[in-house]
Simulated scan of single mutants.
Amino acid sequence: MISKHPKLTITRQCQLLDINRSTLYYIPAEIDRSEEYAIKWLIDEIYTSHPEYGYRRMTVILNRDYDVKINRKRTRKYMREMNIHGLCPGPNLSKRGRAKYLYPYLLRKMNITKPNQVWSIDITYCRMPKGFMYLAAIIDWHSKYIVAYELSNTMDKGLITRVVNKAIATHGKPDIINSDQGSQFTCDAYISLLKSNGIKISMDGKGRALDNICIERFWRSLKWEKLYLEEYSNGRQLKRLIDEYILHYNTNRPHQTFDYTTPAKIYHGIPFLKISA
């Protein structure tokens, strides 16, 4: 737009275009995200151990225990980008109806007695050497069995609809699916998919991660028992580790809730399956 001109000087061209001449010489600095990734790694690890921590306490822990110089505003920004928040057992003070697709929490005091009565769906970060990938999973509340999961390098509505369709195709339709109020679960594609299959929609109260505690506990097990112990450098290796762990979790890992039997046994009667090393 601005170039050498036989009659118009650079200064005059800037005046005519109403722009600051100094902007012509500005070279944008390359953004270094290594620090951001490192901090998000720590937030993911701390939150997995202490899901009750909100951004205020998370800021204190990062500064005190990890010597990370960060303020509350930045911690809150990162936690929001990671779609995580502290568990809040208090009353739900959010106002329903502010978003087009908000639904009430249907599971309070519900007696869940059989498989496919209630499923929970959620997304978690899986850290990579540079950045993150996103894992969506659906867990059956009664048996704690993982009925479907999908790994993606983007967190969008397509990830959610794919995992729901996979679960329904493999195991049939549940009576209810519960989620949080994240944007992936309050979009037309997700709501329409559940409604078209006759599935009742349940959502946690705002800031009440305890409402979806079933899958929160699974994320903790996956990360501490597998992902934090293994080395991987790409999505293919991460997917292999997740496949291995979920097979183990469903079919081999004794579950205290069920007198140390397995989720698979409770879900559809599969006996103990020994997996070769």
Score class of each variant (00 low, 15 high):
124 T>C: 09
152 S>H: 07
79 M>V: 01
164 V>R: 05
93 L>N: 14
116 N>I: 06
37 Y>K: 01
48 T>C: 15
109 K>F: 11
102 L>E: 12
199 I>D: 13
37 Y>P: 00
68 V>R: 10
45 E>I: 00
163 V>M: 13
275 I>K: 03
71 N>S: 00
51 P>C: 05
232 Y>V: 07
239 K>S: 15
222 L>P: 04
6 P>T: 06
89 P>A: 05
155 M>A: 05
181 Q>C: 03
168 I>T: 10
234 N>Y: 04
194 L>F: 03
166 K>F: 09
16 L>K: 04
10 I>Y: 13
195 K>Q: 11
103 Y>W: 13
118 V>I: 07
186 T>S: 11
191 I>Y: 05
123 I>K: 12
122 D>V: 07
3 S>V: 06
77 K>T: 00
270 I>R: 12
168 I>V: 14
225 E>F: 06
140 D>C: 00
106 L>Y: 10
270 I>V: 10
195 K>L: 06
115 P>I: 02
82 M>E: 09
272 F>V: 05
109 K>I: 10
253 R>S: 00
261 T>K: 12
191 I>P: 07
245 Y>R: 01
15 Q>H: 15
192 S>F: 10
202 S>H: 07
57 R>V: 04
238 L>G: 03
70 I>G: 04
206 K>N: 05
268 H>N: 06
170 T>E: 06
7 K>H: 11
80 R>P: 00
148 A>N: 07
164 V>T: 14
2 I>C: 08
90 G>E: 02
270 I>T: 09
238 L>P: 01
245 Y>M: 05
117 Q>W: 03
19 I>V: 13
245 Y>H: 08
106 L>V: 01
120 S>H: 13
206 K>Y: 14
7 K>C: 02
193 L>F: 11
237 Q>E: 15
236 R>E: 14
104 P>K: 02
267 Y>T: 03
130 K>A: 08
77 K>P: 00
71 N>W: 09
223 K>G: 09
265 K>T: 02
138 I>G: 03
83 N>D: 15
168 I>H: 08
37 Y>A: 01
39 I>R: 12
100 K>T: 13
115 P>Y: 03
138 I>L: 15
196 S>H: 12
88 C>L: 08
140 D>R: 00
173 K>D: 08
217 R>S: 15
18 D>W: 13
18 D>S: 13
134 Y>F: 12
220 R>N: 09
118 V>W: 02
166 K>M: 13
243 D>M: 01
264 A>H: 09
11 T>E: 15
66 Y>A: 06
79 M>I: 00
228 Y>G: 09
183 S>A: 11
145 Y>H: 02
130 K>L: 02
128 M>F: 00
162 R>W: 00
234 N>L: 06
16 L>A: 14
52 E>S: 15
42 L>I: 07
145 Y>N: 03
93 L>C: 03
173 K>T: 14
17 L>W: 01
94 S>M: 07
29 A>P: 05
34 S>A: 11
215 I>R: 08
151 L>P: 01
126 C>G: 02
48 T>S: 11
203 M>G: 03
273 L>H: 04
197 N>D: 02
258 F>M: 14
20 N>R: 01
187 C>D: 12
190 Y>S: 09
19 I>T: 01
234 N>R: 01
124 T>G: 10
125 Y>W: 09
48 T>Q: 02
153 N>R: 14
32 D>V: 07
27 I>T: 12
180 D>E: 04
